[in-house]
Simulated scan of single mutants.
Amino acid sequence: MTSTYRAVLLTKKGGPEALELRELPLEPPGPGQVRVRVRATGVGFTDIIMRRGYYPYAPRFPFTPGYEVVGDVEALGPGVTGLRPGQRVAALTVHGGYAEYLTRGAEEFIPVPEGLDDAEVTALILNYVTAYQMIHRVARLQPGQRALVTGAGGGVGTALLQLLRVAGAEVFGVDSAPKAEAVRSQGATFIDYRQGPFDQALRALVPEGVDVAFDGIGGANISLCTRAVRRGGQVVSYGFTSAVGRDGGSDNLGTLSGMLALYVGARLKGRRPAFYGITQLYREDPAPFREDLPRVFQLLAERKVQPLIAHRLPLLSGRAGQELLERGGVRGKIVLLREVPEAA
């Protein structure tokens, strides 16, 4: 039995060079804990925000990034029931995924059905549950309603497009021209934000406005979304990626202006504002996540959703994954895999 394992550690705030491959001692799981051998983890923008030193749920340096994990149960700590060695499981870890092994409380792991692809399952854990909960728990969208999605070609964006289609919505996706086909392939009407204010383009198609807008960018997007939504409709924000400063830190003024536009500006114009954060909700009450992840597993098994996987990289290639994401133009999810298909 091995006594060590390899992991990518984020050693300090900074650029990709702050990610270092280290060898760490492999400890037995404690009471109530489970150790899994990691099969897959994702690379997302939140990982980059952590590296830049601005994320409220990040641990102190050094730590291993990796927001979501799929793995095989290898060892059970004292008192653990309901899981068995060799069982494939998934978890919303927030950090810890860029590693060969991960140990967490047994309650964090959810069994993964047989026959599902590791990379696609990884995409479901954060991106699709985020999208599913915004649609069904926040917006409570009904069949036949209209929805607008900004950043529609990204990981959460494509998840929203697919799940909105399953929910019976008419969908409009905003992004840049290189992602037009990815948006249209999900059954959405494409709007190019570089061709002018997207609220005007949307109103030209739907003069009365959409019922709900989903935005993960923030900044000026909030006001545009507000104008695209009908009076009495809802603006759902799930992030302020535009407010991350170019120096690697947070643009606090940009974040504040986004929150004001959401909670004051939208309300003054007769729209209902909502801010969604999957980690905050999960920390307050993990029950909705434990209910919703199996639901999206079932949708995947039925091929009602099909996650768009942008890159499949080796498991310890977290630095390369973050560099790809920072360069922009990524369509879908970057996944790190213990076993990478030769064609990847």
Results as ranks from 00 to 15, higher is better:
V229E: 04
P197W: 06
Q234S: 07
K179W: 05
D247E: 07
D192C: 12
S242C: 02
A213K: 02
R227L: 08
F214T: 09
S176V: 15
Q186G: 02
V236I: 13
E208G: 11
Q195H: 12
Y193F: 14
V244Q: 13
P178D: 06
F240G: 03
D215L: 03
D175T: 13
A177I: 10
G216C: 06
C225T: 05
I217E: 07
T189Q: 07
L205F: 05
L163R: 01
L205H: 05
S176Y: 08
L164W: 02
S176I: 13
Y238Q: 06
V210M: 08
V235S: 05
V174H: 09
G218L: 01
V210S: 07
G209L: 05
I222G: 06
V183Q: 00
G187V: 01
R184P: 03
P207K: 10
G168V: 04
A220D: 15
R203W: 00
A177V: 13
Y238R: 08
Q200L: 14
T189V: 15
F214Y: 08
G249K: 09
C225Y: 06
A167V: 06
A228S: 15
V210P: 04
V229W: 05
A243P: 06
Q195Y: 09
G209C: 07
I222N: 05
R246S: 10
L163I: 07
G239H: 11
I217L: 14
G196K: 09
S185W: 03
A169Q: 13
F214R: 06
V206P: 04
V236P: 01
E181D: 14
G187L: 04
T226S: 14
D199V: 09
P197F: 11
A243E: 03
I222M: 08
S185N: 13
S250G: 14
Y238L: 10
V244L: 14
D175Q: 09
R203P: 02
E181A: 15
Q162N: 11
T189I: 12
V183I: 09
E208K: 14
A204N: 11
S250L: 15
I191P: 01
R203T: 02
T189M: 03
E208Q: 14
D199P: 04
Y193T: 06
A169F: 01
T189P: 00
E181M: 10
S242G: 13
R246C: 04
R230A: 14
D175M: 10
G196H: 09
D211V: 05
Q186N: 12
A204G: 03
G248N: 07
V174I: 13
D199M: 09
D199N: 15
A228Y: 06
G233F: 00
V206Q: 09
D199T: 07
G168C: 04
P178H: 04
S250F: 02
P197H: 11
S242V: 07
G187Q: 01
A204P: 03
G216A: 05
R227F: 03
T226Y: 09
V235L: 10
Q195P: 05
S237R: 10
G249H: 12
I222V: 14
A201V: 03
P207H: 12
E181N: 12
R203E: 00
G249E: 08
A201P: 04
S223W: 13
L164V: 00
G173V: 01
A213N: 03
D192Y: 00
S250W: 08
P178F: 09
L205M: 08
